[in-house]
């Protein structure tokens, strides 16, 4: 299985049971995860994102058969373009992970459009993390609402060359937006924060069964949460294999294509 949503390092507000890389890796392997796309919690608040990504790359290299680093890009920092370039050229990353709500920009910001263009040129998957936690349980002095997804469909429709995955979008994607995103060929979703009984099957039906991906959001959430959701939904072997492996492989293939291929 391919897990498209894990984090390394430490959540700023709480120690998590598996927030040491070796422990997380052991858990992922035991759960049958063969590849995990890893971002860094440090990418939320650290200003030296270049160092964050270097550490992430080094940590993933220690478990190179399992962990693929997805570097943090903060569009509010000077020369974020340099970080994009280093993610690809210095670290050989396949993707980058954005946290627009923690970095203070909207998705209709021109910098986001520029980032998409640059990511397309570097053949990088772009992950946009819609939220990190429930608004209701946030630290009272660090209240960060989920990413405003208004106009997202229009922004992504203008950039069909770049593949974009929304992480932790479960409670923020309205049925109307889901239908709009389903019309676009370059949008993918994980189901780490999809809730309700049978939620994964419901999501696939409302969105697109070829573009739903396993994401556990470990170690913030237990690995078991997303895996049990697969059991709860009435999925046959074929759909389960798509969600846990084939769709992620297809996303990787599409993102890696050179322009015009």
């Amino acid at each position: 299985m391919i897990d498209t949503n894990v984090y390394l390092s430490h959540w700023p507000f709480r120690r998590l049971p598996l927030d040491e890389t070796d422990a997380l890796v052991a858990k992922l392997r035991a759960a049958g995860i063969a590849q995990a796309w890893a971002g860094s919690f440090d990418g939320l608040l650290h200003k030296d994102v270049t160092a964050v990504n270097a550490r992430l790359a080094d940590e993933c290299a220690r478990h190179a058969d399992l962990l693929l680093p997805f570097g943090a890009i903060n569009l509010a920092l000077p020369d974020w373009q340099g970080d994009v370039r280093r993610c690809r050229e210095s670290h050989g990353m396949h993707g980058i992970r954005l946290h627009p709500n923690y970095h203070g920009y909207r998705l209709d910001d021109p910098r986001f459009g520029e980032l998409l263009t640059l990511a397309g040129q570097h053949r990088l998957i772009v992950q946009v993390v819609v939220r990190m936690e429930d608004d209701r349980t946030q630290h009272p002095l660090v209240r960060v609402p989920g990413v405003d997804l208004t106009n997202l469909a229009n922004v992504l429709a203008a950039q069909p060359q770049v593949q974009v995955q929304l992480l932790n979008s479960g409670r923020d994607v309205t049925p109307t937006l889901l239908r709009e995103l389903a019309e676009l060929p370059n949008v993918w979703l994980d189901f780490a924060m999809t809730e309700g009984v049978g939620g994964v099957a419901q999501l696939a039906g409302d969105f697109h069964m070829d573009r739903v991906l396993l994401g556990t959001y470990a170690p913030f959430f237990p690995v078991e949460s997303s895996l049990l959701k697969l059991d709860e939904s009435e999925l046959g072997h074929t759909l389960r294999d798509r969600f846990t492996r084939k769709n992620a492989e297809q996303l990787t293939r599409l993102a890696g294509k050179k322009p015009g291929q």
Partner: peptide, 18 residues
């Protein structure tokens, strides 16, 4: 808190605990 919540996500809290 099903069906608004997934049985799965809530069960995972206990199944995963050390």
């Amino acid at each position: 808190d099903a069906p608004g919540r997934s049985f799965a996500s809530q069960l995972a809290k206990v199944n995963s605990a050390d």
